[in-house]
Structure formats: structure tokens, C-alpha cells
Design a protein around this nucleic acid. Structure first.
Lengths: 196, 196
DNA sequence: TAAGCAAACGGAACGACGCTCCGGAAAATA
DNA sequence: TATTTTCCGGAGCGTCGTTCCGTTTGCTTA
């Protein structure tokens, strides 16, 4: 997992400098292209932008999903860490849940096409799907459980389905000013609240 | 609009019998393939199943979207007509809304990949998007307005966004037993109810 | 019935795309 | 500098949506 800056291991031989440079260029280029043309931009565009060939991109990132994961890894990690933090700072678990969902929606809505790709059943995006689930599902489960234990929401809500539902609601929220994902997610979270 | 069975018009020359037969075979084949492989099945598969060439399919249905619309036209019309009927029969507008949404969700959930394609921003599916909006948005608006007038739901909900939200929640509800679109849509509708 | 013509057909072909493969270049090493 | 190891570039393959055009087929008219 740690393919970080320093090759500290004795047995691990450091990567060649051109390889490291290309990987960085690729990440920058991908981020730029994703912003400009969305996450589903052709791989060739990213390679061209980074000034490398097709082979290079696929050697560093075996599949598109890996590249996407690498580009957004920092933000997803931050999101995962924000969950417990909100839970301890907020007035109630339900409030923390709402705030965390807001962060999640803000993240998805600002990434062209990411929400759409997250639920795509195209083989090759399983890695992406798995990564998001791996990092965010436990956090979401914790928030939901806390709110349920506090009696603030209906019990029995599967966190997996809930997370996917929120993600789905974010699809297409770019390029359509008439569609406000935040509003709908707000409705969903409101619907989750225990009726009284 | 009326390209129906009988060419009754004096000036309209009837279509050739092979053309009419092929169009019917195409519709049947498409329906079968959609059930078996989903709405995004390759056009070649449909042509092969119908026993016609690629040219034929594209002459009858200029784009994939037109074919999909043709296949599901009857069900969409029935859905559109069910709106007013429910409104007049149900105990309350809100109940009618809920029942109509259930019909909509049932329709989407049983059509592999249709919900996904409905929101696709791929050029070429605009026709499909437009048709669904054209037929269903007025119905949804009527139901929402009635429920709002009755004071049963929060006011100010854009019917367009609401309809899209429901459609989005249906994405991927096939091929994933852990994701229950009906449940989530229920939550969304519950969230719409006026808090009391 | 036979000729002529518009309508319709079939499938090769094109461009776009994701991804693979391998000959060669470049960096590390001796 | 010579050798080895790593990495690179981009041509090429398979798939898909869609177009194009030579050929066939059903209708019409003499």
C-alpha cells in the first residue's frame, strides 16, 4: 500500500526517476482533464495532456478506475476522517450524519461524472466502487448506527443502500441547473428522521 | 404522429409490406434483447435477433433512443394516464402521488439499465429523455401541485428535479440485491411530507 | 405478364474508444 | 564504456455506434 515518496525498504529498489516523474505528470494531467471534460474523458486525452504514450498510462494505472482513485484519494480520505470528527463535535448524531452527507454530496457534485461512474456496472470500475465503499461505508454505518441508537432515525436502514442512494441522487447534478441534488438528498435525510 | 396501422390518407402511400414486417420484428427483437441483456445491449445484437441488417434498424429507428421509446411507449402512456386516475380515486393527493411514484419505480426497476440511460448525458439519448419528460412531467407536476394545495407536502418542490431524483434512485436496482430502490424512494417521498 | 422505378435492404466501412503488446530507448549498474 | 534492467511510445486489436452505397424487392403501369 505504501508506494509513497521514500523507498525506505532495503529490498525495494527505488523507481527510476522518469517513471516517478511520469506518474506525477499523469496525476496532474488527469486531474486537469477530469475538471475540464469530466471523469469519463478518453484515456488518450489524459496521455496526450501528460505528454506520454498509452503504454505509460496503463503501466502506472492498470485501469481507468485506478487512475480515478489516485486522483481523488486525498479527498476521499479526508471525507472518511471527517465522519468521526463530526460525530464527536456535533450536537446530535443525526446532525453529524446530515453534515457528513453534505460533505459527501459537495464532493460528488463538484466532480463531473464521478457519481455516474461510481454506480456504473461496467466491468473495470469495480475497483473504484470497491475503494469508495471500503473507505466510506464504515463511516456511514457508524453515523447511521449512532443516530439510530439515539432514536433519531428509523432503524433498519442499510448503510450500503443509503450511501448508494445519496450517490445516485448526485448523478447529473452538473450540466443541469434545474436539478438540485443537494435539495433531494436533504429530502432523503429528512425522510430518514423518525416520524413523531 | 399517426404512423399507425392504416394508411388512410389519400396522399400518404402505404409502406411496403417488408418494411412494416421488419419494423415489427425489430420491436419484438429489441424488447426481447432488452429483457435479456439490458437496454444498453449492442445494436448489432438486436439486428441479428430480428434477422435484419444494420441499415434496416437505423432506417426505422434513426437512433437507439427512438427504438427504446418505441419499445416502451405503451407502458409510458399507461403511466401517464394512471396519474389523473389515481388522483381522482385516492383518499388524498399525497396518497395518489405515492402510488403513482410506486408505479413509476416498478416500471424503471424492471427494465435493465433504463434508469441509467434516462439520465445519461450521452448525445443521442436526448430524444429518450425528452419523451419521458414530455409524457410524465405534467403528470408529476399535477400530483405534486395537488398535494401541495392540500397542504400535505412542503411547497416549492420542482417536479422536474423530483422526477429525476426518483429516476436516479432506480439506477442499478437490478443486479444488486443489497440496493433497494423502492425503499429509498419511499424515504424520499416521506421526506417530502410536511413536517408536523 | 413484363418492364421500370422508387423503396427498402444488408453489411462493409469509418471513427472513437479501452486496452494490449513489443521493439526500442533510457536509466541504473558494473 | 558495456551490460542489464526498467520503462517508454504508439501501432494495433476488438468492440461499439453510426453511415454509406451497391443490390434486391415489392409495387405500379403499360
Amino acid at each position: 500500500m505504501n508506494d509513497g515518496e521514500e523507498g525506505t525498504g532495503r529490498t525495494a529498489r527505488p523507481k527510476r526517476v522518469d517513471a516517478r516523474r511520469n506518474e506525477e505528470n499523469l496525476l496532474d494531467a488527469a486531474a486537469a482533464v477530469f475538471v475540464a471534460s469530466g471523469v469519463e474523458a478518453p484515456v488518450r486525452d489524459i496521455a496526450a495532456r501528460a505528454g506520454v504514450g498509452m503504454g505509460t498510462i496503463y503501466r502506472h494505472f492498470p485501469t481507468r478506475a485506478d487512475l480515478i482513485v489516485a486522483v481523488y484519494r486525498h479527498q476521499v480520505e479526508a471525507l472518511a476522517e471527517a465522519g468521526p470528527a463530526l460525530l464527536s463535535k456535533s450536537a446530535s448524531p443525526y446532525a453529524a450524519l446530515g453534515q457528513w452527507i453534505d460533505l459527501f454530496v459537495d464532493f460528488l457534485v463538484t466532480k463531473h461524472g464521478l457519481a455516474a461512474v461510481l454506480q456504473s456496472d461496467n466491468a473495470g470500475f469495480e475497483t473504484l466502487h470497491a475503494y469508495f465503499l471500503d473507505r466510506l461505508l464504515p463511516v456511514c454505518t457508524e453515523l447511521l448506527d449512532a443516530a439510530a441508537d439515539a432514536g433519531e432515525i428509523r432503524s433498519g436502514m442499510e448503510s450500503y443502500a443509503f450511501l448508494r442512494g445519496v450517490g445516485n441522487l448526485c448523478i447529473g447534478s452538473d450540466h443541469d441547473s434545474r436539478y438540485d441534488a443537494r435539495r433531494l438528498v436533504g429530502l432523503l435525510v429528512a425522510g430518514l428522521a423518525r416520524p413523531h
